[in-house]
Simulated scan of single mutants.
Amino acid sequence: MSTEPPEGPPPDQPPPGSPYGGGPYGPPPPGGEEGGPWGGGPSGGGQGPYGKGPYGKGPNGPYGGAPDPLAGMPPLAEGGKRVLARIIDLVIVLIPAVLLDWAVGGLRGNDFSTGRSAVGGLFTAGIGFFYEWTMTRDRGQSIGKRRMGLRTAMLADGDIPTSQAAATRALVLWLPAFCCSFFWFVIIGITVLLDRPYKQGLHDKAARTVVVRAD
């Protein structure tokens, strides 16, 4: 009877060269161990440095391996508070716009049901742009956002928007108010509520900004 051992590795050991054995690949990668760099393994089971909030569970989110730009920033603003803040701002803009429109004869007498004239549309777009631009560039807050405890921030670093970013944001937001403000703000609101992961409206995407809690 032959006393030579059977060929191949023992059945209770992985074959040579296996990435989990003693082959050229060494021990298992640290991401597969309990307590790896992002918590419970590569599947993101742990909470990780980004928590479980709206910014994802780790760096492998929408930026494909780059750190999340909102890590360490306040949480994103709630959709309801953003809607209320915009309503406040609309009232602030529309009051002087309607009065100016009435003063130049765009509205006849006291019959405000006839709507705005083209001149009134210009007043709305112009006043809205100037209001949004100056307040966003100065402190990141319109009056509506201040009342709701929100602020606008640059997506890249969380700073107050630059003058150029604030102007771009205000232009996209208010220029269509010349002719179709109601429908345009409905579209803006829908994009804010549906966008993921940063709840950006079309004006936010154009300016690369986000709206976060101020506190």
Results as ranks from 00 to 15, higher is better:
Val212Thr: 08
Leu100Asp: 01
Ser181Thr: 15
Ala156Ser: 14
Arg146Gln: 14
Asp159Ser: 15
Asp111Ile: 06
Cys179Asp: 12
Gln164His: 05
Ile87Asn: 03
Ile160His: 03
Phe182Leu: 14
Gly121Cys: 09
Pro96Arg: 12
Thr162Glu: 10
Leu94Ile: 15
Val192Pro: 05
Thr134Ser: 11
Gly201Ala: 10
Ala166Ile: 07
Met135Pro: 03
Leu107Met: 13
Asn110Cys: 06
Leu94Thr: 15
Asp204Asn: 08
Trp102Met: 04
Thr162Pro: 10
Phe130Cys: 11
Tyr131Gly: 08
Asp195Phe: 02
Ala170Ile: 13
Tyr198Val: 04
Gly105Ser: 02
Leu173Trp: 06
Phe123His: 02
Leu193Met: 15
Asp159Leu: 11
Gly105Cys: 04
Gly189Pro: 06
Pro176Glu: 10
Asp89Gln: 13
Ala165Thr: 02
Val104Asn: 00
Met148Gln: 09
Met135Arg: 11
Val104Pro: 01
Gln164Ala: 08
Ile188Arg: 01
Thr114Gly: 13
Gly121Arg: 07
Arg169His: 05
Leu155Thr: 04
Val104Trp: 01
Phe112Arg: 10
Gly128Asp: 10
Leu202Asn: 01
Asp138Arg: 14
Thr162Asp: 08
Lys205Tyr: 04
Ile187Lys: 00
Pro176Cys: 09
Thr152Gly: 03
Thr114Ile: 10
Val172Asp: 00
Met135Thr: 15
Leu202Trp: 14
Ala166Gln: 05
Ala207Thr: 06
Met154His: 07
Gly149Lys: 02
Tyr198Ile: 05
Leu194Gln: 08
Gly126Glu: 09
Leu90Asp: 09
Leu90Met: 14
Lys145Arg: 15
Thr136Ala: 14
Pro161Ser: 07
Gly158Ala: 05
His203Asp: 12
Gln200Leu: 04
Leu175Trp: 09
Phe112Ala: 11
Gly105Glu: 01
Gly144Lys: 04
Tyr131Arg: 10
Val91Asp: 02
Gln164Phe: 08
Gly105Thr: 03
Leu150Arg: 03
Ser142Gln: 06
Leu100Arg: 00
Ile188Trp: 06
Ala166Asp: 01
Tyr131Ala: 12
Val210Ile: 11
Leu122Thr: 09
